Simulated scan of single mutants.
Amino acid sequence: MGIKHGAPQVPSPLRVIIYFESTGWFNTTTDEKTNEILPQLNEVIQQWKLNGSELLGTFDRDILTAGPAGNTGWHACFLYNVPDLQTVADMTHSFRATGLDMYFRLEATVGRPFFLLEKAE
């Protein structure tokens, strides 16, 4: 029999992991990457710093992989504390609004700190 406990509580701020996959990036030229795509990506990431989100960490799989993401469906992930669900939606929408969704795919998952490793304050 498992441990009895109540329903998980939705944290505030939200704990969000954003999976990042390169898609159309592989079909672009070096000039497009350097002069168009990367500056736009950097601008969007800088804007995320202003929306009340806190970057907790990142993880890039590129040490032992190259090319398309494969079965995992992501190249990197970003772990954030985010103020609310609308901010998460705004973050993913920023890729649509800027056209970055032609080159990258984002997927956000909302969770909470793992209770055995991170105690609530």
Rank of each mutant, 00 (worst) to 15 (best):
Gly2Cys: 04
Ile3Phe: 08
Ile3Arg: 10
Lys4Ala: 15
Lys4Met: 14
His5Ile: 05
His5Asp: 08
His5Tyr: 10
Gly6His: 14
Ala7His: 15
Pro8Asn: 02
Gln9Phe: 12
Gln9Ser: 15
Gln9Ala: 15
Gln9Asp: 11
Val10Gln: 12
Pro11Ala: 02
Pro13Met: 03
Pro13Tyr: 03
Val16Thr: 05
Val16Gly: 08
Phe20Arg: 07
Phe20Ala: 09
Phe20Pro: 00
Glu21Leu: 00
Glu21Phe: 04
Ser22Thr: 06
Thr23His: 01
Gly24Pro: 00
Thr28His: 05
Thr29Cys: 01
Glu32Asn: 08
Glu32Met: 04
Thr34Ile: 07
Glu36Leu: 08
Ile37Pro: 01
Ile37Asn: 00
Ile37Arg: 00
Gln40Pro: 01
Asn42Glu: 12
Asn42Met: 09
Asn42Lys: 15
Glu43Cys: 02
Val44Ile: 04
Val44Met: 01
Ile45Glu: 14
Ile45Met: 15
Ile45Ala: 12
Gln46Thr: 11
Gln47Val: 08
Trp48His: 09
Lys49Ile: 06
Leu50Cys: 14
Ser53Asn: 09
Ser53Leu: 05
Leu56Tyr: 01
Leu56Val: 02
Leu56Arg: 11
Gly57Ala: 05
Asp60Met: 06
Asp60Thr: 05
Asp60Asn: 05
Arg61Tyr: 12
Arg61Asp: 10
Asp62Pro: 03
Thr65His: 13
Thr65Asn: 12
Ala66Ser: 13
Ala66Arg: 14
Pro68Trp: 03
Pro68Phe: 03
Gly70Phe: 06
Gly70Tyr: 07
Asn71Val: 15
Asn71Gln: 13
Thr72Asp: 13
Gly73Arg: 00
His75Ala: 03
Ala76Cys: 06
Ala76Glu: 03
Cys77Ala: 06
Cys77Met: 11
Phe78Arg: 05
Leu79Asp: 10
Asn81Ser: 05
Val82Asn: 01
Asp84Arg: 00
Leu85Cys: 06
Gln86Arg: 14
Gln86Leu: 15
Val88Ser: 00
Ala89Gly: 14
Asp90Met: 13
Met91His: 05
Thr92Cys: 04
His93Val: 07
Ser94Asn: 03
Phe95Lys: 03
Phe95Gln: 01
Ala97Ser: 10
Thr98Met: 01
Thr98Asp: 04
Gly99His: 03
Gly99Tyr: 06
Leu100Trp: 03
Met102Glu: 09
Met102Asn: 12
Tyr103Asn: 02
Tyr103Asp: 02
Tyr103Glu: 00
Phe104Ser: 00
Arg105Phe: 03
Arg105Leu: 07
Arg105Asp: 01
Glu107Asn: 09
Glu107Gln: 08
Glu107Cys: 04
Glu107Val: 06
Thr109Ile: 11
Val110Trp: 09
Val110Asn: 06
Val110Lys: 09
Val110Glu: 10
Gly111Gln: 06
Arg112Ala: 14
Pro113Gln: 14
Phe115Tyr: 12
Phe115Gly: 04
Glu118Met: 07
Lys119Gln: 09
Lys119Trp: 04
